[in-house]
Amino acid sequence: MSDRLTHLTVHPHLWRASYKTSSENKARIPSGFTLLDSALGGGWPQAGLIRLRTLQGIGEVELFLTLLQHMCHPHLLVFINPPGRIQASWLIKYKIEPDDVVFLTGTHEQNLWAAEQCLKNDACQIVLVWSGQPLSLTQARRLQVNAKQHQSVCILFEYQHVLRQSLPLELDLSLIREQAAVTLNIEKQLGGWPRVGLQLTYSPIPSNNSILSAFTRYAQTYSKHEQVS
């Protein structure tokens, strides 16, 4: 009996609740946040459909920075229906070659068709999709299957106003930000337990602190150490 069980436990699509022995965890890409990596079993998955429910402009793309940097050159990094024009200076700041990036916008159906084409094509390993409307079950399944089959990643960004649907995903996340820190919930992940309230501190913007502190420190007109030449 035990041999049949052992045969099952080794099967890639079966997990024991208590620990992860599934083969892909070694293929995970560390996110740079230790708390998150341990929750995800090593880091971001290299294949499958990931959903992130978020607000616009809270560092939602920067969250996946290590994944983007890893999956990029010489393959294409495709932005589908991004919320604004992509600034090449942001890409160069994070060592991503603008020539490896393509962005496109079309109707909802065209976007999904394009996402599928990219996942299927060997020239592209990662696709970021913004959707203003919820995906249907079949649409999500097609993306998940294509991504898994061609070892590529598709990240779906859904904004709050989009009605939440449960979908067959590799990883289901949601994100909110207060000041300099964000709270990330892992709603569901294939092969792992959901985790809620992960606190990550990173800030995608420069700050005036150095200027403000200079004003406080050098407010007085007499200077402590007189300089006499």
Binding site: A214, F215, R217, Y218, A219, Q220, T221, S223, Q227
Partner: peptide
């Protein structure tokens, strides 16, 4: 500019 840096130019 902080006041002290401006004063320094006068010195």
């Amino acid at each position: 500019y902080p006041a002290q840096w401006l004063y320094e130019t006068q010195k």
